[in-house]
Design a protein around this nucleic acid. Structure first.
Lengths: 349, 349
DNA sequence: CTCATTTACGTAACCGGTTTACAAAACGAG
DNA sequence: CTCGTTTTGTAAACCGGTTACGTAAATGAG
């Protein structure tokens, strides 16, 4: 029991072979006579030898570690995504370094720089806002392999994994129309984001395909936050236009919107039908349980890691873009529309 | 624009100095004449030089990276904890490698082995179940620095950071007693866990201190899961003993319990007063908004990182144990007790 | 002017692996 | 028995930094 950690050289000396022999035996599955192999194994056990990862990384030029950039892990949606990514990375023998960008481009770039300087072999990048273009270049000029996950960043090369946002909007829209709604409202995320536009386009397609005289109105854009949800709901109620069904495009927005609807006494689904998006929050427990589009979070995380690692192993995955299928989870927040439109009670006491 | 990444030697050559000079200029804040310093800066800029982290780690014997072992990042409580840890680590210039143990000791040990082999300088360990002793030795024999966070593991050396669970139980208990409750139920986590016992002890202390003839009954233990919450609630209702207030010691358990209470038509707080623990889930939106003990999650994460890094920097923090203060958040799930005890409606249709 | 000290750097030895180039030994064919 | 080939093994170069040690020149004190 020496106080120093055993090195390869110690093992080699004990096994009476050279370091190269031990190294090759360990890595290159070099065929060795039983005699020699046994001596090496015993020496390793005796010293409790574990290769020094820093040395290994330096020598190999890789570290078997991936980086995940995510806006905020405290957000349950990204937490789930991160969990899925971590699980798959671990399954494939990779470690995961986590970076929370806190939704600012500055931090995103900072992290990107850090990661490209840091010991990660590749990066999974999840952003949460429209890129003004200042993210594109640093990403592309990073010499790391990159997979864009969940939200597109225009002009970035590498592979990409998204949920099928358009289909999500479509499923929600179709369900509303089938339930008899003809006036549909939409609480979107940031207007410039691809996901927002795709979801909106999906609803539009559902309307067109139905052939019904359904109308999309009260379309609001803003951040994926409860604050925006509250603002949307207040604006929606005060506009009093009488949409009978509403697609809310994220859990966060939904949480804010529900607060206002509850405060103002809006009865769901009697007065207003509601469909959520994400379906991460425990909406079963809400009052009423919320019908929602569920994103394939686990699959997205898995797929992103898989693509990234395949890329690292030399497979050509550049330009691969995947849209994973979403699902409409039926609960109790959508009903047939009421006879008359919703009328607002009071703005605030 | 060569295709090779610039090395320190390239910079040195261009700046017409030796590698040692550049390295020391970059690290040891070695004082250099403006002339030389400028040449070096220009050379660095010209090559777009970034130190190779693997080489740096090998040479320094550290990587400025911490490891976080957590049962499940998808769980909002641990997600918040992880977010806090990541934020503080980043603030102090450290990266964070994430490991989800999925609550099995096997994986915990596996990760521990991986981390002790991997390029992390220290580990923050969050476990979620009672240790049967098989975690203690691997942790102690790991040559990394360790901070135990959130849940104690007996016999582990290193520093530890917890929330003040006993105080949490106490605050909840005192509030219930002050509101007039004399029959208090307790849905605990795993019986063998320190946190569970501490919370229970806190309620006991509140009862003793009050001098009132209050009684603790319907004490159930189990996993931190909605399933356990459902089981607790069913057992509680069928026992029909008539506790009028209930402390539920985690969000997860609460979610399960609420499902049953809602299904069975238990009116909160008219029939039954409820206090939660953790206060991570959006309980404001539940019906009714839930009074809850809030754990100082951000502070815990910050503190753990801080202790770990201080330990890494040579400060003696072994044996330091901190209990961070919790907070009672008053909302609307606690009322004065009803005249008569709750009577169960039906077990199941 | 001399000697001590500081300034401004350079040389080379590490850190601990992987891998290439090559030697010695063993083996087989002719 | 000789020569080529395979097996088994070694020495040393490399990955790209950090840093102990050393030295030449400049500065300053006496």
């Amino acid at each position: 029991m020496s106080d120093k950690v055993a090195r390869l050289a110690d093992v080699a000396r004990t096994a009476q072979v050279s370091v190269a022999t031990v190294s090759r035996y360990l890595n290159n599955q070099l065929q060795l006579p039983d005699d020699t192999a046994t001596r090496i194994r015993q020496a390793i056990a005796q010293h409790g030898y574990q290769p020094n990862p820093h040395a290994r990384s330096l020598s190999l030029g890789r570290s078997e570690t991936l980086g995940l950039v995510v806006p905020d892990i405290a957000n349950p949606y990204f937490a789930r995504l991160a969990a899925a990514v971590e699980r798959e990375a671990a399954r494939q023998g990779y470690g995961l370094t986590l970076c929370a960008s806190l939704n600012t481009q500055e931090r995103e770039r900072e992290y990107l720089a850090r990661l490209s300087r840091t010991a990660v072999d590749g990066i999974i990048f999840v952003s949460n806002h429209a890129d003004d273009g200042s993210l594109r270049d640093p990403i592309n000029s990073s010499n790391r392999r990159i997979v864009i996950l969940d939200e597109d960043i225009a002009g970035v090369r590498g592979s990409k994994v998204f949920s099928d946002n358009e289909q999500g909007g479509y499923l929600a829209g179709r369900h509303m129309i089938e339930m008899g709604h003809r006036q549909i409202a939409f609480f979107g995320g940031p207007e410039a984001m691809r996901s927002t536009q795709a979801r909106l386009a999906g609803v539009r397609r559902a309307i067109e395909e139905s052939g019904e005289p359904a109308e999309l109105r009260d379309i609001y854009f803003g951040s994926y936050s409860p604050e925006h949800g509250r603002a949307c709901a207040e604006r929606f109620l005060s506009s009093g236009l009488g949409a009978t069904a509403l697609l809310v495009t994220s859990d966060e927005i939904m949480i804010g919107a529900l607060e206002i609807f509850r405060r103002e006494g809006v009865r769901v689904p009697d007065q207003l039908s509601l469909i959520g998006f994400d379906d991460i929050a425990p909406f079963v427990l809400f009052d009423p349980p919320l019908t929602s589009i569920r994103q394939p979070v686990e699959a997205m995380g898995r797929r992103a890691v898989d693509l990234l690692i395949r890329g690292l192993k030399g497979e050509d995955v550049d330009g691969v873009v995947e849209h994973l299928p979403v699902e409409l989870v039926l609960r109790q927040s959508v009903a047939r529309p009421p006879r008359e439109a919703i009328t607002r009670k009071t703005k605030r006491p």
